[in-house]
Design a protein around this nucleic acid. Structure first.
Length: 583
RNA sequence: CGGGACGUGGCGCAGUCUGGUAGCGCACCGGCUUUGGGUGCCGGGGGUCGCCGGUUCGAAUCCGGCCGUCCCGACCA
């Protein structure tokens, strides 16, 4: 690689840290995305030569993709260090016994294997067990607490359905951290510190994001929040009210339901024939009543038996809300239903049912409803909670757009989001079974109070692309772009243009920018421009015949593809100043 | 776990219905040409048509099984 020093200017020693000359380098771009790729971020990441797929849910990261990931992890590392967390590294493969101790051995998503000696091992889907195992051995005194430990480590999860490129995969790197505290007040402090660090991380990464209340899921514990990047490609949905700040995963969201008015009802349930009526829609049409005045009965099978869930006809059962009440469950089969109720699906109701747990959504405890009569083709009018049947009362319905926020009543909007991070208050869930205890100032043995906190750097990258792209390619936030400036050199080696490109490359690098210089001789100018826009670095500089002898330098701001002219004199400083103004 | 679709050189696709042993664009290699928007010219290499089995004189094509990949659903009786 030959340099072309110009007179009176001292060339720093190459290679310039973080900068790269493209000729001879591995950067495979694609004119067309693979037919399998559907999500925008997936298509662009593959086309722009950032990643390649190995198998379903398994991706290899190529050099330019790795550059972005490294910038994301650097931001995370800085912010974790800033709250006093210490980085460490835990194994990916674990003895099964540790997972058995917490009851998490055998989860569907867990990869399990045996070593040559027949010892059962698992591949880590997360690391609470391992951190706690070490804490149990190393933490002895209240003087050892609090602690926050974190790592960037591979997680393996046998996802039922990997999808959307890097958004749901079976193997990925996670930044996971764990806080160890003396008590819940300490946990609250650690939790808040993490929430604030996460806010800085996602702001610095250039994402639009929300922090929302979330389900504790397989982690268990006292409470949780998720960090969500809005995107049509998102798999989760949040409900939020911009005016009052309420925001929650729909798994958790509660709303003020707008109850329709009830007229007078009969003094007792009144059966009537409903031949051929099986769905709420049919029942509404048959009776002329609004679905909200009908009650639907949904039967699921939990580990300890059948559960009849009663909801307003216009509402949908939310599985995760129900799961918090009855645990793991599945939909009931029609023949099972017939055995318990004496009628098939479509004519079920809560009146007179025995041996089946009944859970009524809170919205059906007032007013009188039409329900099934547990006889095929017959329904009951005027069914009243407390008078004609009883059951547990809970919020088990899914929030709908337009319902009132619990904070102010403002209408909720639903928005698809990508989960980019989460924080959990674990409490004693892991420290108790694994014996992570310490002695307090009075010499009493007490369990360590824990929290865990995760970020998926590749999801941050994918979310940034989902939020920042146009028809030409990726539009990176400047903090996580693979390079800061992309110089397209049009001109043969040895030409004055090439010398100028070399010089700008060196000067920008010396100012601390990371520069990609497209000095390829075998690529045509059009190809270089198209690929530069596909890759999407914040600034593109073109150096060709038109640039000489006195400029100006032609600069494209990638976001918006706006063209700017920069004087040759002091160009590097001017570019750096321009770069600093970009998002 | 249920449903749907697809699998033909590196990528995108045609050919499959109506069997006769493979084609296009891009990429790649050689040469010429050219150097400001992936599109100049000439020549060339590369595919056991996902795998296995069957039918047939003959299978990318028909039949069966398997594997792989993607999408939708997995709550609304």
């Amino acid at each position: 690689m030959s340099e072309t020093p110009s007179a009176g200017w001292s060339m720093p020693a190459p290679p310039y840290r973080g900068s790269l000359r493209l000729s001879g380098r591995f950067w495979p771009t694609l004119r067309d995305a693979p037919a399998d790729a559907e999500a925008v971020s997936h298509r662009l990441m593959v086309r722009a030569g950032l990643v390649r797929q190995l198998a379903s849910g398994l991706y290899s990261v190529l050099p330019f993709g790795l550059r972005s990931l490294r910038r994301i992890t650097a931001i995370i590392r800085e912010e974790m260090d800033a709250i006093g967390a210490q980085e460490l590294e835990l194994p990916v493969m674990h003895p099964a016994e540790i997972w058995e101790a917490t009851g998490r051995y055998g989860l569907d998503e867990q990869f399990r294997l045996e070593d040559r000696g027949g010892r059962r091992m698992v591949l880590g889907m997360t690391h609470e067990e391992i951190i706690t195992w070490h804490a149990a051995r190393e933490i002895r005194s209240y003087r050892d607490l609090p602690q926050s430990w974190y790592q960037f480590q591979t997680k393996l999860r046998d996802e039922p359905r990997p999808k959307s490129g890097m958004l749901r995969v079976r193997e990925f790197t996670m930044k996971d951290s764990y806080s160890l505290d003396r008590d819940e007040e300490g946990l609250d402090r650690s939790y808040t510190a993490h929430a604030e660090a996460y806010a800085r991380i996602f702001d610095r990464s250039g994402l639009r994001w929300y922090m929302v209340e979330s389900d504790v899921g397989m982690m268990g514990g006292l409470g949780a929040h998720e960090f969500m990047a809005p995107s049509p490609a998102g798999e989760d949905t949040i409900a939020r009210a911009p005016g009052d700040g309420y925001a929650a995963n729909v798994e958790m969201a509660v709303s003020v339901a707008s109850d329709p008015e009830f007229g007078a009802g009969p003094d007792a349930p009144d059966p009537f024939d409903t031949p051929g009526v099986g769905t709420i829609e049919e029942l509404a049409a048959f009776t002329g009543l609004a679905p909200a005045l009908l009650a639907k009965s949904v039967v699921v099978v939990a580990d300890d038996g059948p559960v009849l869930c009663l909801l307003r006809g216009a509402h949908a059962l939310h599985e995760k809300k129900l799961a918090r009440l009855v645990g793991r469950h599945r939909p009931a089969q029609p023949d099972e239903i017939r055995g318990w109720f004496g009628a098939g699906p479509g004519s079920l109701g809560p009146v007179g049912v025995e041996g089946v747990r009944i859970v009524a959504d809170e919205t059906v405890t007032r007013g009188h409803y039409v329900t099934g009569a547990n006889r095929d083709g017959v329904h009951l009018r005027g069914v009243v909670f407390g008078r004609d049947f009883t059951g547990e009362v809970a919020d088990i319905r899914e929030v709908r757009a337009g319902e009132g926020s619990p904070v102010s009543g403002e209408p909720l909007m639903l928005e698809p989001v990508i989960e980019i991070g989460n924080i959990f208050k674990l409490g004693l869930k892991y420290s108790e079974p694994l014996g992570a205890t310490y002695l307090d100032a009075e010499g009493r043995e007490r369990p360590v109070v824990m929290g865990s906190y995760g970020i998926g750097p590749a999801r941050v990258m994918a979310a940034a692309i989902e939020q920042g792209h146009d028809e030409a390619g990726i539009v990176w936030p400047r903090s996580i772009a693979p390079f800061d400036v992309h110089i397209v050199q049009v001109g043969a080696p040895g030409s004055p243009q090439a010398a100028l490109a070399d010089r700008l490359f060196a000067e920008l690098s010396q100012l601390g920018l990371e520069v990609l210089l497209d000095d390829r001789q075998d690529a045509k100018p059009g190809e270089k421009f198209v690929e530069a826009e596909l890759l999407g670095c914040p600034l593109r500089v073109t150096i060709g015949k038109r640039t000489l002898p006195d400029g100006p330098l032609e600069v494209q701001v990638r976001r918006g593809r706006e063209r700017r002219d920069v004087l040759l004199e002091g160009a590097a400083e001017a570019l750096r100043a321009l770069w600093e103004t970009l998002p």
